[in-house]
Simulated scan of single mutants.
Amino acid sequence: MVVLSSGCSCLPTPGIDFDPETVGRNPFYKLLTPVVVPRPIARVSTIDPDTLAVSLAPAKF
């Protein structure tokens, strides 16, 4: 059972409370895995052919 932080299950609120005992182990694991497991980060670079300016930025995928 998902209970919103306001105690009302009908209106969306900024926070959601989860009770691992009532949600179950597998759904709770699937909920937390994308939050806890880091995503790979790549460095993407581009070079402007006219000015030879270089740009380097992180990219998550």
Rank of each mutant, 00 (worst) to 15 (best):
P40M: 06
T33L: 09
P27M: 04
V35C: 14
V35E: 10
E21N: 05
D50H: 13
T22R: 14
I16E: 07
P12A: 02
I41Y: 02
I41W: 04
D48Y: 01
T33E: 10
S45Q: 09
A53C: 05
N26A: 12
G24C: 03
T22L: 10
T46Y: 00
K60D: 06
S5M: 00
V2I: 02
L32P: 12
C10G: 07
S9K: 06
P34I: 01
P12S: 02
N26T: 13
V3N: 06
P58K: 07
V23Y: 04
L31M: 11
T33M: 08
V44F: 09
S5N: 12
R43Q: 10
G7L: 08
R39H: 13
T13K: 13
R39I: 00
I41Q: 15
I41L: 11
L52K: 12
V2R: 08
V2T: 07
T51F: 03
F18I: 14
L4R: 12
L4T: 07
P12K: 03
P34W: 04
I16V: 11
V2S: 03
P14N: 03
A53T: 06
G15T: 15
R43K: 12
T13I: 00
L4F: 02
A53L: 01
R25L: 13
A59N: 14
V23P: 02
L56I: 14
V3M: 00
N26C: 08
K30W: 10
I41K: 14
L56T: 11
T22A: 11
S5V: 04
S9I: 07
V36I: 14
F61A: 15
T51P: 03
N26L: 15
G15N: 14
P40E: 12
T22N: 11
T13M: 03
L31P: 04
I47L: 08
I47M: 06
R25E: 08
F61I: 11
S5T: 11
T46M: 05
T13E: 15
F61G: 13
D50Q: 14
A59W: 12
I47W: 02
L4H: 09
P20D: 08
L52F: 13
T51L: 01
C8N: 14
I41D: 09
D48C: 12
K60R: 13
P14A: 02
A53I: 00
A53V: 05
S45V: 06
V23G: 04
D19N: 10
D50G: 05
K60T: 07
R39Y: 10
V3H: 05
C10E: 09
Y29H: 15
T22V: 11
S45R: 05
P58V: 03
M1I: 00
L11G: 06
S5C: 00
L31S: 00
D48A: 08
M1Y: 00
T33V: 10
V23Q: 07
A59C: 11
E21A: 08
G7W: 10
L52A: 15
A42S: 15
P12I: 01
P38C: 01
C8V: 12
R43Y: 08
N26D: 13
A53P: 01
R39A: 10
D50P: 00
I47C: 07
F18D: 02
P58A: 05
P49I: 02
A57W: 12
